[in-house]
């Protein structure tokens, strides 16, 4: 469970999030909102990539301010642009990066890398330079790299925004297929329709918090 208590965040003088208090427990949670509404900042608070300027974020009781490392082991993060997330030059190398950071033994790293590559049809590309992959394959690699670390929750920050229609579907399917809990920031409303809960952000506040059947139409009305 992720507990958010009186959380506010500001970059210098500019407040981006204002006094949020909520618990995140559902299996699929969607986060929507216009540009600059604070949703990306919110996502980064959930695994301690950002520490809130006010209030606390706790993951299973761990405070992101004090236990950032432990929190990041529980909460994985997939970024909008996979090019910014792929760290090492070769596909298999990059997949193993997070696992090495966890200090796992060599054979365990090899086993998990292999499994993740197989799951997303990347096995033949293991020794390929990552920059030669297609946009969709890169995002799958980013997801595989996070998944291999076996987090309990995965946060996605606009994972499909930069992709074409076919690759959007592939990533959406991959997210649907996860056994882990997922919190997804997205503009792709069709994909979010079967989620358990939708949070609508505006001007640093959550203005709608409801099931998709109610929240998404209200959001569309709000934006038009």
């Amino acid at each position: 469970m992720i507990e958010i208590r009186h959380v506010g965040h500001a970059f210098g003088e500019r407040a981006v999030l204002r006094d949020l208090t909520l618990d995140l427990t559902e299996r699929r949670i969607a986060v929507v909102g216009g540009n600059g509404s604070g949703k990306s900042t919110f996502a980064r608070l959930l695994n301690g990539l950002l520490v809130p300027t006010h209030g606390t974020v706790r993951v299973d009781g761990l405070d992101t301010r004090r236990d950032g490392k432990a929190v990041r082991r529980k909460v994985g993060f997939v970024f909008q642009n996979p090019d910014n997330q792929i760290v090492l030059p070769l596909v298999a190398e990059d997949l193993a990066f997070g696992l090495k950071n966890l200090g796992l033994p060599k054979d365990e790293i090899a086993r998990r890398t292999d499994e993740a590559l197989r799951r997303y049809d990347l096995l033949d590309l293991a020794d390929h330079p990552a920059h030669l992959l297609s946009g969709g394959q890169k995002q799958l690699l980013a997801l595989a790299g996070v998944l291999a670390m076996a987090p309990e929750v995965i946060v996605f920050d606009e994972p499909t925004t930069l992709l074409d229609l076919r690759n959007k579907r592939r990533i959406a399917q991959a997210i649907d297929g996860l056994s882990q809990r997922a919190i997804v920031v997205s503009h792709d409303l069709d994909f979010l329709a079967h989620f358990d809960r939708v949070l609508v952000f505006e001007d640093g506040r959550i203005v709608i918090d409801d099931r998709p059947s109610a929240a998404l139409p209200a959001y569309v009305a709000m934006m038009s």
Partner: peptide, 20 residues
């Protein structure tokens, strides 16, 4: 991009103070 990359590295449990 460097901000994102650094965040991505941290998000994958990289610890700059623990010698690899």
């Amino acid at each position: 991009m460097s901000d994102d990359v650094a965040a991505a590295i941290d998000a994958r449990s990289y610890d700059p103070d623990r010698a690899g």
